[in-house]
């Protein structure tokens, strides 16, 4: 049992507490976090690639990507820095669409981004209508500081897994910890089990 903090009352948010994972707080804004400068989008040079331990790799130009079936979806997001934002509205392509036809026995994925960021996710977590590559937020093109032109969105994991400026997925046989996962953050990152750091 945690010690009581003398005189601390706390501010109980007026939201359904079952939607806020343990240790998180309700945030109305949209904080920005990233480890380096925001890359500038260059749509002419942009591509999205799925490669690695797959039968045949796949790649889309920006125009190809925009021609894929678009989904709009509303999800709750949870950042390891403790904020949770509810009912965020996005538009993008489902990973089920992108992974359709990708054949592999491998179980892991490294998502990589413009600027060198990487994060690892089990392949199974990207299937089943639980993950997208999003290029719209609130009905408008995704702002660069929030990951535009396109970012990964895996809302059932802490938000660092939703790689900003994503450019591709590399399927791997071995699980390979990504940028934050090598820097003390949990390898899987389930907010409902509060898997923030290595020791969680």
């Amino acid at each position: 049992m945690a010690p009581i903090t003398r005189g601390f009352l706390g501010r109980r948010p007026d939201v359904d507490p079952t939607r806020i994972p343990p240790g998180q707080y309700f945030e109305r804004g949209f904080p920005v976090l990233s480890a380096g400068p925001t890359p500038r989008p260059d749509l002419a040079a942009w591509s999205f690639t799925i490669d690695g331990a797959v039968g045949r790799s796949a790649s889309w130009s920006w125009d190809d990507f925009m021609a894929l079936p678009k989904e709009t979806f509303t999800v709750d997001i949870h950042c390891v820095t403790k904020w949770s934002k509810l009912d965020t509205a996005w538009g993008g392509v489902s990973l089920d669409t992108l992974l359709d036809g990708v054949e592999t026995q491998a179980e892991y994925v490294t998502a990589w981004s413009e600027g060198g960021y990487t994060t690892n996710v089990p392949l199974a977590d990207l299937r089943g209508g639980r993950a997208w590559v999003a290029y719209e937020y609130d009905g408008a093109p995704l702002e660069p500081e929030h990951g535009g032109p396109a970012r990964l969105l895996v809302p059932h994991l802490y938000f660092w897994k939703s790689a900003k400026w994503v450019r591709g997925l590399t399927v791997t046989v071995q699980d390979q910890p990504g940028f934050w996962e090598q820097n003390g953050y949990h390898n899987y990152g389930d907010p409902w089990r509060e898997q923030r750091y290595w020791s969680d």
Partner: peptide, 14 residues
Amino acid sequence: VRLTAEDGYQAQRS
């Protein structure tokens, strides 16, 4: 830093 109110309510920030 994690703060705990008397009823067990907690809030933490970095």
